[in-house]
Design a protein around this nucleic acid. Structure first.
Lengths: 351, 351
DNA sequence: TGATATACTGTTATCAGTAACTTAAAGTTT
DNA sequence: AAACTTTAAGTTACTGATAACAGTATATCA
């Protein structure tokens, strides 16, 4: 592949002049500029951004660390990140940790080696590690979706999990359910704790006793939802409603429920945190609380890029908490009992 | 951030020795090695792969150009790519073209600038452009999912669209449908042509006349499916079954059909090329032909990496065509009429 | 004992750009 | 016409790592 020197020689100018042409700087005579452009096309010269990044000490690249691109919530979020990055001439390196803290460390190290300009992190570990410390000293980090213990000073964009879980639980209670099981992810993931907190808040508010056997800290995955549902269903006094802590858990729960020969919502209610778009479009089934995943991606990327380019020299943390939305469909048996709605809450009713 | 020289100075050795330690080369005295490692940890030194890539002329990065990460087919494929890349110490830069040839050019140029070691391309344009020519001279490219005119010499991994469409159409015919509409993507995308070809083949074989008004070259998107379905339904003699050329088209079709007050499958059959996993797990509804998207990603990445590392110096093109699978569920009214199955074909029946 | 191999470490040049500085010529001002 | 400014270039040094080569010290062998 030709270099800037090949272009320079052929155009009869210095490399610096070619550099100026490429970067659209002034101080180049129009004729010279044209000649250089012609040579660039003739040779099929493509600037080497490796070398460029190397001298300029910026890569115009950000890293996105999520748990699983296969999860619709994260793919939508990722799309928001990518679109926004592209708009700002940044590219994105994707990393799937599969909720594995070791993979997370691996990827963070990789990103640090690649000297990405910034990182958007949905942490799997929820804890500050030596590497993370290192990273945030050298590279701006914006947290997304989840808090990380010990990194309370970083910018963060997340949904209001406490309130969302409260809404969803309250909805079940209003429909008459009393024994409500909840399945969330690993305990050190902030959303898991938050969603349980919202759930408890709703129960307490309605004077329903909290039973620990109905609360499952599992994994944010189909398997997690499947296994925990089986456990819940085999309790002596099984729940009459299940709250899936995320979309994958709800899918796993659905599979388990069907295996047990039960129907949703006739035999048991099933609601979910996070929607599954392609499912809902074809079959508006799950009553859910959705988060604006795309916006989360967009906002996080904007915050990050501003930090990277140091446009706003705000030193204090920026914390963006987006409100979730309750979408009532049919999986809690809303059509079987009379419909109840909270007043003043953001609520949408699908057909 | 500390450099290799900072480490060298503090450890009282040369940069070269540090380099040898980092890269696990022999010819370093154990004590020296330990001392260097200690300093690396003390300083929190992270090697600069920018500089490394620059001298070694390889970036250990590949580019993945797809149309939309939001499409479950591509996210699964992307996951296959990412996992395989990671396994081989490669990272992946994602690019969404949204079926826009201009965006495709933009991204290819970006990847060329970044001097990625290779590119996996699901082309939106279907045509060879000057940039693509340039790219393939300097950077190995593996095509995925779609052929590109003029690039018949590149490795490719794709599904057998002709056969898949044939299977699906044949299935409809066997169920008694005669007026079958088909909606596929843009005409210059190879899968669109192939799927129509398979569709025609099945019709001809059964002696059913081909009617051009039932064949829609639209867009591989929900909007495309929606609009074309509306058109089909407003024909004087509308189809009794619709073949969605991909999953998004099928979703769009479903929405349009519902808007028209029709039911699937009672009033009209609807089948789809490509499954929608999260939908099918909860609600096994669509009768589809699926492609092994994850495997496609894995195989393409393996082919690419082998080219990059030049392990096999095969010069001839490697063409991997994966067979699709017909999954019979209920959206073609299989439960309404008696079930018919092709003999010897790969067929699965979901409950 | 001298020759040769081996283990370990250092030196130098280089990769492809760009910042900062320098130079040369042309234009402007008084 | 001397002094100054502007325009349009070119030169040099540097980014962080590594390959290739060059030493030096120690070990091994005939």
């Amino acid at each position: 592949m030709p270099t800037i020197y090949d272009v320079a020689k052929r155009a009869g100018v210095s490399a610096m002049t070619v550099s100026r042409v490429i970067n659209g700087k002034k101080d180049v005579k129009p004729e010279t500029r044209e000649k250089v452009i012609k040579v660039i096309e003739e040779l099929g010269y493509v600037p080497n951004s490796l070398a460029r990044s190397f001298v300029l000490q910026k890569t115009k690249t950000i890293g996105l660390v999520i748990t699983d691109i296969t999860n619709p919530f994260f793919t939508t979020l990722a799309r928001g990140v990518e679109d926004t990055a592209m708009k700002n001439q940044f590219s994105v390196i994707f990393c799937n940790t599969d909720e594995d803290p070791e993979k997370e460390v691996l990827y963070l190290e990789l990103l640090a080696r690649k000297r990405v300009d910034g990182v958007i992190l949905a942490s799997a570990s929820g804890k500050r590690t030596p590497l993370k410390s290192l990273l945030i000293e050298g590279i701006p980090v914006v947290l997304i979706d989840r808090e990380v213990d010990g990194l309370e000073d970083l910018d963060i964009v997340k949904g209001d999990s406490v309130h969302g879980a409260y809404l969803l639980t309250k909805h079940l209670i209003n429909l008459g359910y009393r024994r409500i099981g909840i399945i969330v992810g690993n305990k050190n993931i902030s959303t898991a704790e938050d969603r349980v907190e919202g759930y408890k808040k709703a129960l307490i508010e309605s004077g329903i006793p909290i039973e620990e056997e109905l609360i499952k800290f599992s994994r944010y995955s189909k398997e997690g939802g499947y296994i925990s549902t089986k456990e819940l269903l085999s309790l002596e006094d099984p729940p009459t409603a299940i709250f899936g802590g995320n979309n994958f858990i709800a899918i796993g729960a659905m599979i388990a429920i069907r295996e047990e020969g039960l129907r949703v919502p006739e035999d048991i209610a099933l609601v979910s945190f996070d929607d599954i778009e392609s499912l809902s479009e074809v079959y508006p089934f799950f009553t859910v609380v959705t988060q604006p995943a795309y916006s989360m991606g967009v906002i996080a990327t904007e915050l990050l890029i501003r930090r990277v380019e140091n446009k706003d020299r705000v030193r204090e943390r920026r914390k963006v908490i987006l409100q979730p939305e309750l979408i009532i469909r049919g999986s809690a048996g809303e059509n079987l009992v009379k419909e109840v709605r909270e007043e003043g809450e953001k609520v949408r009713v699908d057909d």
